[in-house]
Structure formats: structure tokens, C-alpha cells
Nucleic acid binder design. Structure first.
Lengths: 193, 193
DNA sequence: CGCGACGTTGATTTGCCTCAACGATTGTGG
DNA sequence: CCACAATCGTTGAGGCAAATCAACGTCGCG
């Protein structure tokens, strides 16, 4: 993956960009290297950026009242990461974003991005469609949480995100599914039979 | 609530519209009356519309493998309703949308709405911000599902949607929370003590 | 009036959690 | 580069939250 994948990601939303527009976009983003275990965002800070993952893997999580991590989302190559709730409201984030591998991202501040919308209005459409798709994905996750038991949710995860399976620990997957690592282990051992 | 609330809803996203733009918008939407128990969308159909609720209440739900209803979302006055997943992909919806009360909506087809984006480009921004907020709300729901037990989820629902509480049956609330109606009843009786 | 949907309560079952123990793997400092 | 610690994956025993099943009174409505 490289910087150009950002433009691919944009144009996959059904919009064609001129070379000049592409240049403006590239100059608005900053390439940033993030080492494993480093944080892009810590709970309590305001999320004033968005990032596009070129290489690597991130988790977005919050802590429950017992202090256990609840993973909300994983982002790998070609995905976006930010805390939209904090980004929208300018209030402190309840989530943290941490690199699970040495990673490389394209980073843009909220301020810079708002300016970009003025320069390239068609970006509004691109991000509208992108956000619509994210809504659909989040709705799907809620439907699964309402309809499936732990075993079925794990099977859906395996089917939907086979590449993620290999890059994550069981603890991380269990936290994403909302079950204990011990119970996930039992699900896996039953599945092999 | 009346038609003008649609414009209020738009302008609350930080954009001001001219009178001419408002007129164009009004003429693009159709006022539709929907009787209690009637369907706006049935599972298996493609969702080629969006609707804004002026009066009344709707539920969006799907059926699990046992045939039980799982309510994904309620929409009352001043909210939007559609199945974004089907709307985006043009594939058959897995959800159904049904009126819980005699209702009145502003209805627009996908085709008409795409034309509206061409006529009034600033609508792209309005809908982008609207969709961003929806994403944040969906993320919040996922966090709750991951972090809270049934009692805490119910208390959050009461706090967040007090007006909905009075208009829904316990069965509907239980289905939304993903618990059985019997258990919800037990939660409620404990709470009164 | 009578039927069906609703809300409640109790008895029983079950899916998943918690705690504890263990080997295997990974990481790290000397 | 090795020794030791930390993290990880697994398994078993026991416990709890919530589901299921069943019964019953109430209410609204045709």
C-alpha cells in the first residue's frame, strides 16, 4: 500500500478527480509513522483529525467500569480511523486509538480537512457516501449483536474479516466480540472437531 | 410538527438555505400518511427512498433465525428513516420498516434525491454531517452493547429517550435492548423498590 | 361480551463469565 | 545470547445473568 491508495479509496465512491485536485489532496495529508503500541488518540483528548491507514493495524477501544478494554473497531490498510463522536462534537473522546503493529498513515487535521472541502467541494460527496457506508456497516454489527450468539458472531467475524483473524490475538478478537478470551478459546476448540 | 421542521433539521447542520432552495426542497418531497401497522419497507424489497417523520413513530427491525423480531431503530418526529444498507447497495433489504402509530412523513425517492444534490450542492454537506452524527450514535450503541449489562442498558435508554418510553410497549423496548420481555419486566420491578 | 395482546411472576435451564492452574510463546534486560 | 518475565492460549470447576417455559390477571378492542 502507498499514498495513491488514498485516491483509489476516494474514487471508489464514484467520483473522478483531476490531477490538480489529487495534488491538493496529497499536500493536505501528512505521512506519519506510528510504532507498535503508540497512541494516535487517548481517551480524554479531543479527536481533531482523521487518518487513512497505508500500512499496519490499529484498534479503537474504550474501558468499561471494571477497567477492561472493549474494542470497538480495527483498522488496517485502506481503512479510515478516527473517533467521529469526539470529532463532531469537539468534546473529549471516550475512546483510545493505538497501533497494534508498526504502521504508516496519512494524517489530516479537522481544520485542514474543512478547508479542503472548500477547495474541492466534490469531497463532500465522497465523504457523504463513505460515511453512509460506515453507517450501514455499523448497523450490520448491531443486527449481529441482537441476533447472534457468541459462536455465530465469531463465525461471522471469521467469514467477514479472514485477514484480520491472522493478525490479531484471541484476546483482541474476544474483546471485539464482547466475550471472554476463555470462552472464545472454547468456541474455537469445539469448531475444530 | 409540520413540513417546516425538515428545513429546521437541515439548517441545524450549520448551513443556511435561501427561500428558493427551500422551495425546491419542499417540491422534491411528498407528504405521505401511513396508518398504524402499515409498512414503509418490507424485508426483501430494495430501499429506494428516505423519509423524514413529521408525526408518528416507526420501527425498523429484522427477524432472527427463530423468527423473533429484533428492533434496530425507532424513528419519531424530526428523525429520518430508511435502510441505508439496501439504499447504498441496491440489494434487497434485510429489515422491515413499520408504523407503530398513524403517521405522517416527508418521502423522497433515491432518484429524486440524487437530482436534488445536483441542484443544491450544499445538501451534500448537510447530509454528510447528518450521516456523521448517525455514525457517532451507532458507535455509542455498540459501546453500550459491549460495556453494559441489561439493567444498565435499560437505564441508559430511559435517560436518553424518555419520550419514547411512554409511546412503546415493553415488548418493543425489550426487542430493541436485545433482552426478553420477561427479564425487562423483572428489571423494571426491581427499579421501583 | 369474549378474544387476543400485554405485563407480571415463579421455576428451571443455559450460555457465558470468573477464577485458577498450566504449558507454550514472545519479549527483554543483563 | 541466554534467562527470566510477561503475555498468550487452553482447560476445568463453579457461579451468575438472562433465557425459556408456564401460568395468570389486566386491558383494549372488535
Amino acid at each position: 500500500m502507498n499514498k495513491a491508495s488514498l485516491i483509489d479509496n476516494y474514487e471508489r465512491k464514484g467520483v473522478t478527480l483531476s490531477q490538480k485536485e489529487k495534488d491538493i489532496i496529497f499536500s493536505a495529508f501528512k505521512t506519519v509513522h506510528v510504532k507498535k503500541k503508540e497512541y494516535l488518540l487517548k481517551a480524554g483528548e479531543v479527536c481533531d483529525f482523521e487518518a487513512f491507514v497505508i500500512q499496519g493495524c490499529f484498534k479503537k477501544y474504550c474501558l468499561d467500569d471494571k477497567g477492561d478494554e472493549r474494542i470497538i473497531h480495527f483498522s488496517i490498510e485502506d481503512w479510515w480511523i478516527a473517533d467521529l463522536e469526539s470529532y463532531n462534537t469537539n468534546e473529549p473522546s471516550r475512546t483510545s486509538i493505538q497501533a497494534l503493529e508498526d504502521s504508516e498513515i496519512l494524517y489530516i487535521t479537522k481544520e485542514r480537512k474543512e478547508a479542503l472541502y472548500e477547495e474541492i467541494p466534490i469531497l463532500e460527496r465522497i465523504y457523504r457516501r463513505m460515511t453512509q457506508q460506515e453507517c450501514a456497516a455499523l448497523q450490520r454489527r448491531i443486527i449481529n449483536k441482537l441476533s447472534l450468539n457468541a459462536t455465530e458472531e465469531y463465525e461471522y467475524f471469521c467469514m467477514r474479516y479472514p485477514t484480520l483473524l491472522q493478525r490479531l490475538t484471541n484476546i483482541q478478537i474476544a474483546s471485539y466480540l464482547g466475550i471472554s478470551q476463555e470462552f472464545l478459546s472454547k468456541i474455537r476448540s469445539k469448531k475444530k472437531l
